[in-house]
């Protein structure tokens, strides 16, 4: 029942902020953490795939969780747990001693010195395990310098977006990169269209998304040009922390087979992947291992 003009709004606001700040799914996370089973039980503990990516503005948590849980649970006591906030995810990492983590390569590079994560699998899309990120503008933007103070649309977190821009433009432009207003949108394709419709001056997206736009809407694509490109970076990886028991091995094997089955492939597509495969030496080298 409504009572207040102002305090109602504030209390709701506070709840919402907490809800978001702590990671929308974190609420679900802890509610759904595996409960320790009695030692006498022969039932294996639930194995969970923990997921977080600063590269995409994942806002379909409930669907991801439901879809992956439905799929995984048909093979055993497996669950999928997405996180919405980097801080919450990292706090969880610091408090756990084992688990399977689906994370972005960029994030792994930041985590690998702090946590004993061992990369085992990598995502693949159209037979490639790497992708480039591109900075796209309209044709009338002649140089990177012209973007000073402008709005850059990106589906990645602001920290991630700035890191990638530094990767593209090196260290000589720190103040320029700091001057950008990062405009977070839900999807790469939104970012590209934000530029097309004049709501942002540039977009940072994967090169695949730009190719996709060219295929779907050549006119929109025609309004855009690439201003900069990153080196090839690996697609998301699966890393294991702690003891990798039989159950973990079985789950990893299942993850590798997902792309071969229609139902598994459908779930991976929701993450923008065709399949997960074992990392080879070249790919491990790209991770600095």
């Amino acid at each position: 029942m409504k009572t207040d003009i102002i305090s109602t709004a504030i209390l709701r606001s506070h709840f919402f902020r907490r809800y978001i700040a702590n990671g929308m799914v974190a609420l679900l996370t802890f509610a759904s953490l595996p409960q320790p089973l009695p030692a006498a039980s022969n039932t294996a503990a639930t194995q969970i795939i923990y997921f977080y990516s600063p590269e995409t503005n994942i806002n379909n948590f409930s669907s991801l969780k439901v879809e992956f849980d439905t799929y995984l649970s048909s093979f055993g006591a497996y669950e999928f747990q997405p996180f919405s906030e980097q801080a919450t995810f990292e706090k969880f990492l610091g408090e756990t001693s084992e688990g399977i983590f689906l994370i972005s390569t960029w994030h792994f590079q930041n985590l690998k010195t702090r946590y004993p994560l061992k990369p085992v699998l990598v995502g693949q899309l159209r037979n490639r395990s790497t992708q480039k990120r591109v900075l796209t503008t309209r044709h009338d933007t002649s140089s990177f310098e012209k973007l000073r103070g402008e709005k850059i649309a990106s589906a990645g977190s602001p920290a991630y977006t700035r890191t990638i821009l530094r990767q593209i433009y090196g260290k000589e432009n720190p103040d320029l990169i700091d001057s950008f207003k990062i405009f977070t949108v839900p999807k790469d394709i939104d970012a590209l269209m934000a530029v097309g419709f004049g709501m942002a001056t540039a977009a940072l997206t994967t090169e695949n998304s730009l190719i996709k736009l060219a295929r779907i809407n050549p006119k929109q694509h025609g309004l855009l040009k690439k201003l900069g490109t990153t080196e090839e970076n690996l697609l998301p990886i699966v890393a294991v922390m702690g003891k990798s028991g039989n159950e973990s091995q079985e789950l990893l094997a299942l993850m590798q087979k997902m792309g071969e089955q229609a139902e598994g492939e459908k779930r991976l597509k929701m993450l923008g992947l065709d399949l997960l495969k074992q990392l080879d030496d070249r790919e491990l080298g790209m991770l600095g291992l």
Binding site: T3, I5, T8, I10, R12, F16, R17
Partner: peptide, 26 residues
């Protein structure tokens, strides 16, 4: 409405006065 309000506040990052016209006393 409350989601729009919260993201507005996070974006503007300034002090705001919030008024709920849906409240009975409004």
């Amino acid at each position: 409405y409350s989601i729009a309000q919260d993201t507005f506040k996070e974006t503007i990052n300034r002090v705001t006065i919030d008024v709920d016209l849906g409240a009975e006393s409004a």
